[in-house]
Nucleic acid binder design. Structure first.
Lengths: 138, 138
DNA sequence: GTCATTGCAAATGCTTTGCAGTGCC
DNA sequence: GGCACTGCAAAGCATTTGCAATGAC
């Protein structure tokens, strides 16, 4: 629990039952959920919430920088509430499991000026792929 | 031109006019094309090619390891024929332009055993994001 | 009271699929 | 000549949108 709700309120975010539930779902121990999974968990707490509202709210949280969108493949995006805790991802190519990892060093420092082509580089996203112990055993 | 066709033929890939055209489009100077862009260029050379065949062929080239799928956002995947030349990507958050980059060091070496959680790590994909000179000027 | 937010349902964009016909090896 | 590949059209999945009704501030 990282007090996402408190931060949002502090930023003047208009609070509704639907938005609160979406934020609570993300702020729980659940990370890397798809929009559909967020909807399912939100519906369990607030049956009348709609799919469109979940999408709207997730998009808003991403714009606010409180949640990060993780695109691991061409399928559904995943939403990661750990935006204030920089990290990267390790994904099982077999079952799709995602783990947060903290590699040594900052990837940004590995990109010399000569490789920046005049870009103003703002960030780096690192995805490791491999096979998890479970899939390797099965 | 990297003789993608020769490699494919050598691997016993069944050759058809459609497959040849898709491979030729990718093997040209065009990289980071979406499936739709590949279809457009393929159609220019072979008007009767179908969208399904382009998708089939691209999927096959990816399975063969001759082409890499790059998922930069939740939109269309892009296809990168540079599979035999390891590299990473720098993407403009404004216009979507993609450049190949070669950062210093191997990202894999930055992930200590303690951060691998028992996974057999096979590869790392690094995406830098920033604003390109064109967008910064405009 | 005002205006942002919601819910619904339809629309969109990208990709996959089923199946009959075609053509490569 | 067999069987993989192709084309078509329809289905599928994730996401977005239009608009009237609702409710937070």
């Amino acid at each position: 629990m990282s007090d996402l709700l408190a931060r949002l309120r502090g930023r003047g975010w208009r609070m509704t039952a639907q938005r609160r539930v979406v934020a609570e779902v993300l702020d729980g121990e659940h990370i890397h959920l798809t929009a559909d999974e967020v909807l399912a968990r939100a519906t369990a707490r607030l049956p009348e919430i709609s799919r469109a509202t979940v999408y709207n709210t997730l998009g808003e949280l991403v714009s606010l920088g409180e949640v990060t969108e993780v695109t691991t493949d061409g399928r559904a995006k995943r939403y990661d509430p750990n935006a204030h805790h920089p990290h990267h991802h390790l994904i099982c190519t077999c079952c799709g499991t995602i783990r947060d990892v903290h590699p040594n060093g900052d990837p940004l420092s590995g990109l010399p000026t000569s490789q920046r082509f005049g870009f103003t580089v703002e960030g780096a996203e690192l995805i490791y792929r491999g096979v998890c112990p479970g899939c390797a055993a099965g």
